[in-house]
Design a protein around this nucleic acid. Structure first.
Lengths: 151, 151
DNA sequence: GTATATCCCTGTTCTCCACCGGACTTAGTG
DNA sequence: CACTAAGTCCGGTGGAGAACAGGGATATAC
């Protein structure tokens, strides 16, 4: 049977988020960024990152430009992309996980499922409230702190 | 690097919860219940359930009695076992998943990890507030509703 | 037309989940 | 005491997905 209602930060999601933070940081420049560059900056295997960006593109979160001087850029402003958008797109690629989660064969099963859904929704609400822009700002704030240690 | 913080209701956890609800419902009787009986009642493969109950026993959530007329019973009162207790014991069997989840190699990685931890904690707080006793009561309430439909 | 990118399709390795079987141990019953 | 009903321990299997790697096709700037 194997129903699964998963809330899980895998490498996959983390890689995707790192890449999108990188794209967000350079969003204002308006020029595409190459996979290689992102991979080097965030220490992600480039061949793997390519697949993740492809999924993000199909989901409409990023746009790509082929050919020389090509690369990737955000499809919309970084404050209009929530963390939930990213994770759902990456993790729920098959996406039927939620669909086939609906034949508990006992009353107890239904009760458990309901409680679990509440818990997942609590987490999702929090992830929905944070955008890529927020991540970039938090990152910059921490970098600032690190620099101050040098003075 | 791989895998940081997971919050996931798999078959495994669901089976365990179903079994514990069953044990909770018969807690007052004070007699052990057999694997076979639980498995039949909740439609769980018995050989698999055996392994789950073994894990719950090692975690101190249930007690077992061997031999004829043996079986399993809760180690403490059903209102003193939270859903988080169960899921952490089942899902975190390897348990190092949280331990080795802490060497993000960039500032961005740290920021992502922190936000994720907040989200997980939101869900855990909710799971911590519900006990096995609560599940049993919710189940009974629903059974009552079903009976009323027959009248 | 060549260098530089993405696009797409196909493995490969590895781990974990869900589950099965068999041998051993313990405890009640006659 | 033997028998039997239960849990306990050990291992194995099949499938799925995660985390990659390779190769060739395609599009674009210069």
């Amino acid at each position: 049977m194997c129903r699964a209602l998963v809330l899980d930060l895998s490498c996959k999601s983390e890689y995707a988020l790192l890449a999108l933070v990188e794209l967000s940081a350079h969003y204002a420049e308006g020029e595409p960024i190459q996979i290689r560059q992102i991979a080097a900056e965030q220490h992600i295997p480039d061949r793997y990152l390519e697949q993740l960006l492809a999924a993000l593109r199909r989901a409409g979160l990023v746009r790509s430009q082929r050919g020389a001087k090509g690369g990737y850029m955000l499809a919309r402003e970084p404050w209009k992309i929530t963390l939930l958008d990213v994770i759902q797109c990456i993790e729920g690629a098959d996406a039927q996980s939620a669909d086939r989660a609906k034949n508990p064969k006992s009353v107890a099963g239904n009760v458990i499922l309901d409680v679990w859904k509440d818990a997942v929704q609590a987490a999702e609400t929090l992830l929905k409230s944070q955008t890529l822009q927020d991540l970039v700002e938090m990152k910059d704030a921490r970098n600032q702190v690190e620099i101050m240690y040098y003075i």
